[in-house]
Design a binder for these strands. Structure first.
Length: 765
DNA sequence: CTCATTAACGTTTTT
DNA sequence: CGTTAATGAG
């Protein structure tokens, strides 16, 4: 606690010591509290330290109450970490009232207080991406459009993007020029209508509804403008237009807005993030102070050099040079493997070796990949080698059926307008209300002008089967009872009572299958979450607060680093983290980079690669496989162009040769082998166990007509190009040698059987 | 109406 | 390949 003169003096001394530990730019960033500030924080430049010091500094030196500071982060985890680090400086309880959290959670909270102004109640439900998708799908179906004409996924993406850019359904409709976009706009309109009717907001609404609120009620805006004397935004390069606008509105009064970011680490444009926000900060705030944190404290010289070389291939970037006074360190190691299983094996072996030779422990290692699906092979290899690991991401806890079901109950208890949740629970656990009965009830509701739930409550008044009526009555009683409990008890008690009354745990226990047991455990864990939540947030342990936190929680958040385990995660999830030893896997064209055709996307992939590389403190491994399973089939893979962008003087292969030497060799070879574009072959660069190779890597333009390689070069599942039929997929390969015939399915031309020798096909990927 | 088997589908990345 | 939505028997 901070009280007493002595403590105050001690604290001041502590702050002075901390300030002295900062470099000049960092110090400037902390001490410039007034006016707009932009902190360009390179990877590993002590950004979190600067932000937390700055908050502590403002509270202490500027004598600012914590509840007058708004700190916006990208993840809950970052927010929690910053909060606890401020408390480390100023003492336990010193951050009470501080508005620190994600945009989404801070504004969800703000909206709860003013929901009535927007036609919602404070018990509004937050729909996650899945919920939105289901709703969109439903609306498309109701419009009588097939979901393969109007793909729910695509529509959701467009709607979300529109919301992020503050485009209304009406505007979208005006700009629509074809059937698809017209219908998308219509779905958009109906979707919003439905959200309103259900008293629900989606993730994007949490950002754009505050803007609407502030525009329609200037007095509310004025209140928050006055209140938030200091605003800080982390990961500013990843903010979207809506976030940009709302931040600008809130900073309008005091103009003490401090944004922190690194354009080189912008990796969320697919989610609507606009790099222009950070690039154009000075246009909005001409008087802004710019701080450049360019000294890296994390990586070795070698790692930093490799990362800098890679990112220099990007055209769009702010000028900056990241440097370090750390040691040179070990070279980067490049692994080449025949397939993803051997790649994983090599990673596991390297971890085992390093634990013996370099004294590393499991928690020192992180393995990164581009897509979640890649974790499987890695997990298998680690398990096989007895290495403890932990996977982040993948199927989220909150996306599991049993959890979504229980959450649906909780939502409905609070918000009886939430019809989506009602539909989910009306027959869960099974109480004999099937499709037919439901249809009946829906019809009644429409006829009588009631909501579905009202119709259910009035079941006795209609001509329905007795069994159904009693089932519906029981359901209503259940809901009413729980609703009453929720009024005066904590979220934990509501969840416990819900589980008791529905006897869900018993049912699962009696089933006693592996799957039922897993679900049982998940429900128990959920109950634990509820208990923890209530313990932790004693100020507001209400069901409402718990649901809000649960809706916005992600798996990243419970990333408790305790336990000596290797970390597996996507690179997106790895942002902001650091590990002594890092493996970046799957460096293959069309995996990483995923889509190299679009130059802007390619640059983003490169930034992603840059993020991955700069997570490593001491040692970095980069790997790729020459074939990879996808949808249960093996596909040939080509090494990523990013590998060619690595600094050849800093990277060695398994054989210990510098990449530069190999490149030199290959350059000489290619003088004599013009046809061989793949320079991985025939050197000690290649895998020793060639006999087990599934299929040789097919390069983009390899012609299949040169006879000998024919049979082995073409395989089922490959995409090929034909002069007349266009691109097609190989369905079957028959015969061998010059008689080889293949069946190819061409889009447009249908399935064709071709004699390979004459077909003159080109492998596309 | 429920449970089982079968068909279709998909992979970026996440608040 | 693994998961989930759709179909059909009991």
């Amino acid at each position: 606690m901070i009280n007493g003169i002595l403590d105050t003096q001690k604290l001041l001394a502590k702050l002075e010591t901390l300030l002295k530990s900062l470099n000049t730019e960092q110090k400037k960033a902390v001490e410039t509290t007034k006016g707009p500030v932009m902190i360009i924080a390179g990877a590993g430049s002590g950004k979190t330290r600067v932000i937390t010091f700055r908050i502590a500094y403002i509270i202490n030196k500027e004598n600012c109450a914590p509840n007058q500071i708004l700190a916006l982060t990208f993840t809950n985890k970052a927010a929690n970490e910053m909060r606890s680090r401020v408390e480390e400086i100023l003492g336990t309880g010193s951050t009470r009232g501080l508005w620190i959290g994600t945009f989404h959670s801070n504004f969800a909270r703000l909206l709860r207080q003013h929901a009535d102004r927007l036609g919602f109640t404070s018990d509004y439900t937050i729909y996650d991406a899945d919920d939105s998708k289901n709703l969109i799908k439903q609306i498309i179906t109701e419009l009588g459009i097939a979901t393969d004409v109007l793909a729910p996924n695509a529509v959701q993406g467009k709607i979300s993007m529109a919301k992020n850019r503050l485009v209304t359904p009406e505007q979208m409709s005006q700009n629509a020029s074809d059937f698809i976009s017209e219908k998308t706009a219509e779905v958009f309109y109906k979707y919003n209508e439905r959200l309103q009717k259900n008293n629900a907001l989606d993730f994007d609404d949490l950002l754009i509804k505050p803007i609407k609120l502030f525009n329609e009620h200037p007095e509310i805006l004025a209140h928050y403008q006055e209140r938030f004397q200091y605003i800080m935004i982390d990961e500013y390069q990843d903010t979207n237009r809506a976030q940009y606008i709302v931040a600008k509105m809130l900073a309008g009064q005091h103009r003490n807005i401090c944004v922190v970011g690194d354009d080189a680490q912008s990796i969320y444009s697919w989610r609507g993030a606009d790099i222009a926000n950070i690039l154009g900060f000075q246009n909005d705030y001409k008087e802004a102070t710019i701080c450049r944190l360019e000294e890296n404290y994390r990586c070795t010289k070698t790692i930093l050099k490799v990362a800098n070389t890679v990112i220099s291939n990007n055209k769009e970037q702010l000028e900056k040079t990241l440097y370090t006074s750390n040691e040179t360190g070990e070279p980067v190691t490049l692994f080449e493997a025949t397939d993803e299983r051997r790649e994983a094996e090599k990673v596991a072996m390297a971890i085992r070796e390093r634990k013996l030779s370099s004294g590393n422990q499991n928690s020192d290692f992180a393995i990164f990949y581009r897509t979640n699906a890649q974790s499987r092979a890695l997990e298998d290899a680690l398990r096989f080698n007895g290495i403890a690991y932990r996977v982040f991401g993948g199927v989220s806890f909150y996306k599991r059926k049993e959890i979504k079901d229980i959450v649906a109950y909780l939502r409905f208890i609070l918000n009886s307008r939430d019809e989506e949740s009602l539909l989910r629970i009306i027959n869960f656990p099974a109480r004999g209300v099937g499709e037919t009965s439901l249809k009946r009830l829906k019809d009644i509701a429409i006829e009588e002008g009631f909501s579905l739930y009202e119709a259910i409550c009035r079941a006795t008044h209609y001509d329905l089967q007795n069994r159904l009526i009693s089932a519906l009555n029981d359901f209503r009683m259940l809901i009413e009872d729980l609703r009453e409990i929720a009024q005066q008890h904590t979220a934990y008690e509501v969840v416990a009572e819900l589980l008791r009354k529905t006897r869900l745990l018993e049912i699962l226990k009696n089933e006693n299958t592996a799957e039922a047991n897993a679900r049982y455990d998940n429900l128990q864990e959920f109950l634990n979450f509820a208990r923890q939540f209530c313990d932790k947030s004693a100020e507001d342990p209400s069901l409402n607060a718990f649901l809000q936190s649960a809706s916005l929680a992600t798996d990243q958040d419970n990333a408790d680093a305790n336990g000596n385990q290797v970390t597996l995660m996507t690179i997106h999830a790895a942002k902001g983290l650091e590990f002594p030893v890092v493996f970046v896997t799957g460096l293959e064209e069309r995996l990483f980079p995923l889509n190299p055709d679009e130059p802007r996307e390619l640059e983003e992939e490169r930034r992603l690669f840059y993020v991955a590389l700069t997570r490593a403190e001491k040692k970095l491994y980069v790997s790729f496989a020459k074939s990879r399973y996808k949808f249960g089939q093996s596909f040939p893979a080509k090494r990523s162009r990013f590998i060619e962008e690595l600094d050849g003087g800093s990277v060695v292969t398994e054989g210990g040769k510098l990449l530069d030497e190999i490149r030199l060799q290959d350059a000489e070879k290619s003088r004599y082998h013009y046809d061989d574009s793949e320079y991985t072959s025939r050197s000690n660069f290649s895998d020793r166990a060639q006999s087990r190779r599934v299929a040789p890597a097919a390069s983009r333009q390899t012609s299949l007509t040169s006879s000998s390689a024919k049979k082995s070069a073409i395989a089922v599942g490959m995409k090929v190009q034909h002069k007349i039929f266009g691109t097609g997929k190989v369905m079957a390969v028959q015969g061998s040698g010059d008689d080889t015939k293949i069946k190819v399915f061409f889009r447009g031309a249908g399935e064709k059987t071709l004699v390979l020798k004459y077909a003159n096909l080109t492998v596309v990927e």
